[in-house]
């Protein structure tokens, strides 16, 4: 069984947010419900100022805080590395959102960032919280895996594009968007990334491209000191933002 993981090369990332836009399209997200966000921040003073950005999907932790706190076992870890939410079970208590150190979980019924609310413009006549004409084919939807348009009152998050990756041929080491054989199984953000800053593959396979990159280019994990053991690794090269090793000051 594969242990799927992602590598993001920050030196290549241009902060274009194609990952964010593609994720929203592939997974039918609302504006602002950015399962795959890019966080921008600035440091320093003019003229020696820096603008930086940090792409941030769900880390699909080996030791996920969210799973530990869920009172109804709605959020769970699969054997091949996905952290998913079962929308049939989720009660929307948001414990997981508080427990997640990476801030990558979203509650359905937030006030929309930009009005009018798409949920009222594209009203649903079933248990889906909304019903946009561009939504994914029904056959792809899978509420047990948190895939598709969620019902009201639940928490949602990046699924590593479970509906794509889970169909990948068994035993494949890497899912590359450049290879027509594996492209359709590759997560949307990886397919989308124009500078090819993202890689996706089997972390348990020492011959996978992702395993080699992590080894050769000193892959680091965000907030590693917390012990969540993310399955998303960052390559920082010489140009990327490195928020991974900042100490958290507890007050």
């Amino acid at each position: 069984m594969a242990k799927w993981g992602m590598v993001i090369d920050l030196e290549k990332c241009t902060g274009c947010q194609a990952c964010t836009a593609a994720c929203a399209m592939e997974n039918n997200r609302l504006p602002g419900e950015q399962w795959q966000d890019v966080v921008f921040f600035t440091e320093g003073e003019y003229p020696s100022v820096q603008a930086k950005w940090f792409p941030r999907p769900c880390m699909h932790c080996e030791n996920p805080s969210c799973v530990h706190v869920c009172p109804v076992r709605a959020t769970y870890k699969t054997g091949d590395g996905f952290v998913l939410v079962d929308w049939n079970r989720c009660i929307g208590c948001k414990y997981c959102m508080i427990a997640c150190p990476y801030g990558v979980r979203f509650y359905t019924d937030e006030k929309p960032l930009v009005g009018p609310d798409l949920k009222t413009v594209f009203k649903s006549n079933d248990e889906r919280s909304w019903n946009p004409p561009w939504k994914m084919p029904d056959a792809r939807e899978n509420w047990k895996r948190g895939v598709g348009i969620q019902p009201r009152g639940v928490v949602s998050k990046c699924t590593f594009c479970y509906h794509r990756v889970s169909k990948a041929p068994k035993g494949v080491a890497d899912l590359s968007e450049h290879d027509p054989e594996t492209r359709e199984y590759t997560p949307a953000c990886v397919v989308a990334c124009p500078p090819t800053a993202r890689y996706f593959g089997d972390l348990d396979n020492p011959d996978s491209e992702v395993s080699k990159m992590i080894a050769n280019k000193n892959g680091v994990r965000l907030l590693d000191q917390l012990g969540n053991k993310p399955q998303v690794y960052y390559l920082t090269g010489s140009g990327g933002a490195v928020p991974s090793n900042r100490a958290i000051r507890k007050t």
Binding site: M1, Y76, A139, E141, R145
Partner: peptide
């Protein structure tokens, strides 16, 4: 009631229906 789904079971044919019927917490496919 969450032990059994209180929600719409996915009314789709084929594989996704089978996947939905499989247990949570496993790889599930």
């Amino acid at each position: 009631n969450t032990a059994i789904s209180r929600r719409r079971f996915l009314q789709v044919s084929g594989a996704t229906g089978a996947a939905a019927a499989a247990g949570a917490g496993l790889e599930g496919v």
